[in-house]
Design a protein around this nucleic acid. Structure first.
Lengths: 204, 204, 204, 204
DNA sequence: TGTTAAACGAGACGGTACGTCACGTCTTCGC
DNA sequence: GCGAAGACGTGACGTACCGTCTCGTTTAACA
């Protein structure tokens, strides 16, 4: 998934294990060193792999970290707790738990910072991290509409706009709470947040 | 304000002009190069200053950029547009305008990324950037309470919690919209956002 | 010969051409700049080599210059001019000619200066510069003894002491004449010197 | 003696104590650090003096060290031990004792090295160090001629040439023995050396 | 006895070189 | 032909001294 080169027909095939080892080593290095002290040479050593191998698969530090962090978001899923509020609280708590992990904290903001000047990187982040989260928002809304907790939205453009807004509010608030304010997005906070958000969305 | 050493009584005093030149040069370099390509040697050259002068005043790239970006937020102020909704819209638009400037975009996220592993840096960011914004939130709420648009909040602990929540929701949403989703926080978006937020805060 | 690290089995081997280029560039820089203005960055540039390559092979300026200057002494050899006096005159003139070259003048004294505080450097100088010269003294004496111009010396300890004395007198006088007094060790001076030395050694 | 500027008529006069303190601090620093690690800022601190004061009196490290080392040679004098051989041995031993002191060892060779590219420095060395030693050679020879141990030399040009030769042989041998060969110029060595030198000079 | 002009301490300044580090590329050899 | 090992050119790092430049403060000779 990460690799650029389209895999040649002939010669010794690339080790699949190497990919996993490199990504795991990257996360381990993020935990121990953080983004700014992480070096690709060190990652290669940890993974038991030559630097060459690493560069054959990723273009640089940013791309590698995007992929390493993206895997953390694989476990995100929409729980069915019976009500929209409970569902949101559940997914926000999951999201907060991921952001609380040291391998995500510094890596995520660093690649976002770089992505403001690198469109390919922004797209990579969108595709492998943001999209995953966005999907949950859309899924949750659809389920709530089926349940009758939210009114159906016939206009697709308006629907997309609202989806975007919700997503920016949810993800933004959790990220800001966790990484900027530096306070935990714990159950109490998540409950307050969800109440304000849902009230704002459903009150006339 | 930026410097560490508390200014000694004797010896040649530090050039005040140098500080301003360095911070301006830093912002210029952020515009042209972005965070990752910005080098302190280049900033020193742009500022017409020796590298050593720069290191005498700032401990590193992160500290320097915090101070350079912080000055951008000096212009933030709470407009009095007559209603809470209008006031919020005004201040959010100002905030979005600052985040839209290239010298803020990559620099801000990069220092936040690093601050997740550096408590001194986090405190510096809080004191010189976040605090400025937080003040506006508190000011706006106080004014709205005077106007009767918001109920007075007698419990100071609860008041602080709510202030934090509002702040994380406002700042988080704008930052996420601007830097992660990569879409403009324009008037339309701000209006929608403000409506959801205010409704959520004021509906029973 | 200069390098420390004993050459590993695997990996890309060190460029042999780089060594020669660096030493030549060092001598060129000594000619143009002298010891005190010579910088390793400049040497690297002249040699068409990265600074890191240079540091991978030599620990510092002193070690590098020792090796660069040592090569100048490679050409020293003991001529066979038929008599001991003529042999000595020949080798002293050769020695003086080397010391007269600008790449030797400042470099040689500078490393000797440093060697008074650095035993490893002193040993490096001894092995690659002094030893070469000492060998000629011993060779010349042996030849003179075969010729009958000098009496055989049965006691090896006394022989070593005398060898040391001769060597210090020859090398010291030429160096002092050339570098301290700043006058040329020309044929006339060499003849006078040789006469005094030989007379002193052979008269009862 | 060291100072350049011709001392103005008015204003605060220069502290005489400062000169002595600086030279003493320089020697102390030479002992502890050697030439290459000695810095003028450190010397100033040791002397309890500002860097400015130091630079007002000396142009740089080389000039300062020449003066600091030169004072060591003030104590050199020609003993009257009754015979030319004994006189020479005495003065050579004194000379060797000075060269054995750590403040002389590295400093002396370093300034000689630099003097090969700096004529003003060479002249300064000649005037304040070499001249002192040369005077002893001439004095000793004159005394020996009065005693009849050496024949009078009517030709002044030849006399100068011989004086130079003797001086280069004496100073060169001791310096080489002490600083290059790294062995002590002790009584035994001095006796051997003096015997060879005197025999060479006096035998027909 | 007061003026005054230079020397003084302190330390910031523009520079230059240092020696190190990580980057991303390359070259060699073994599997 | 992949992969490890590691040397390579490149370029920024942060530090250390250099020698110069302000500052405010003595301090001794002159008026």
């Amino acid at each position: 998934m990460q690799s650029r080169t389209p895999a040649s027909r002939t010669g010794r095939p690339r080790s699949a294990a190497a990919d996993a080892a490199i990504l795991a080593a990257t996360r381990q290095a993020l935990v121990e060193l953080g983004w700014s002290r992480l070096t690709l040479g060190d990652v290669a050593t940890r993974a038991g792999v030559a630097k060459t191998t690493l560069y054959r698969r990723w273009a640089g530090k940013h791309e590698l970290v995007v992929d390493a962090v993206a895997e953390l978001f694989d476990e995100l899923e929409l729980p069915d707790r019976g009500s929209l509020a409970a569902d949101i609280e559940g997914v926000v708590l999951q999201f907060a738990a991921i952001l609380d992990r040291p391998e995500a904290r510094s890596g995520l903001m660093a690649v976002v910072a770089e992505s403001t000047r690198d469109d390919a990187l922004r797209e990579r982040i969108r595709a492998s991290i943001v999209e995953r989260q966005m999907r949950l928002v859309l899924l949750g809304r659809a389920r709530a509409q089926r349940r009758g907790e939210l009114p159906p939205e016939p206009d697709p453009a308006e629907s997309a706009r609202t989806g975007d807004l919700i997503f920016d509010m949810v993800a933004g608030a959790v990220v800001h709470r966790t990484l900027v304010s530096g306070k935990p997005a714990d159950e109490e906070w998540v409950r307050s947040f969800t109440r304000v958000l849902l009230t704002g969305l459903t009150s006339p």
